[in-house]
């Protein structure tokens, strides 16, 4: 009985996102900004990045957010070139779109990626059932995915639910750098899911291997080597809002309301 009143005691704490912007989401250092123009010390900057996420192209620094673990070393040492941006809507539909500043992208390419995903996502309407598989994560991504069901994010309000059985699942969420021991189980889980289906790679480890990209115990370049990934959610780990945006990105491909990238 006491629990009933307990449950009501704080009023509604649930975020209005995505209908309205949520202030907390933007407190999060979710992406990096790179200043335009040539930079000195190119070799040193490349060497200093622990995951080799920074590269140079005719003097212009580029950072691959899909390899970045957000350690902040580049911001600390080369603050005039790199800075954090408070952003959480960082999930993207292709691996190339994770590079900042953006490469000259092929619009027709992106359009065809979107169209291909839209055909599959159409079947789900506005409701999707998720299945999560850990493929060698550090344990933190699981906390952030599980947080989506807490009263603040409460993703059930958006028609997003989790299932234990791959047979009931529409979207597979994969975390971790792709440990060799899990690869077979991951493939099997994917095969057990009915068509149509989609895959979301959550976290830098899942996208590129992160700090384990050169480990002999993981696949070399992230989950994409094992499964066709549709959405990439960068972060080490990404915030719950970042993961939620990734899921919404898949849903929005069909009804292009705010033109996701």
């Amino acid at each position: 009985m006491t629990w009933i009143f307990k449950g009501l005691s704080n009023g509604v704490v649930t975020s209005k996102y995505p209908k309205k912007a949520d202030g907390y989401g933007h407190k999060w250092q979710g992406s990096l900004m790179v200043s335009r123009g040539a930079t000195a010390n190119q070799d040193r900057i490349e060497q200093d990045c622990p995951t080799h996420a920074i590269g140079f192209e005719s003097g212009q620094a580029r950072i691959d957010i899909g390899m970045c673990i957000f350690c902040g070393r580049c911001v600390e040492k080369y603050g005039d070139t790199f800075s954090f941006t408070p952003e959480f809507e960082t999930a993207r539909l292709t691996r190339e779109l994770l590079v900042v500043p953006e490469l000259s992208e092929d619009e027709t390419d992106l359009a065809s990626v979107k169209a291909a995903l839209a055909i599959r996502m159409k079947a789900f309407g506005n409701s999707v059932v998720l299945r999560h598989v850990d493929c060698g994560s550090d344990g933190s991504e699981e906390w952030e995915i599980a947080a989506l069901t807490n009263p603040i994010y409460d993703v059930q309000r958006l028609g997003i639910t989790f299932t234990a059985s791959p047979r009931h699942a529409d979207i597979l969420i994969v975390t971790g750098a792709g440990s060799l021991g899990m690869v077979d189980s991951l493939k099997e889980t994917y095969l057990q899911m009915p068509n149509p289906k989609a895959v979301i790679a959550v976290g830098t480890d899942a996208i590129s291997g992160g700090v384990y990209s050169s480990s002999p115990q993981t696949v070399k370049n992230g989950i994409n080597e094992v499964l066709p990934v549709d959405i990439y959610v960068p972060g080490s780990p990404p915030s719950p809002f970042g993961i939620l945006y990734g899921i919404l990105l898949a849903l929005r491909v069909v009804s292009d309301r705010n033109e996701p990238r």
Binding site: H132, D134, A164
Partner: peptide, 10 residues
């Protein structure tokens, strides 16, 4: 396991 029923580590 190793694929658990829920959002758990493998």
């Amino acid at each position: 396991g190793p694929v658990r029923s829920g959002v758990f580590e493998s």
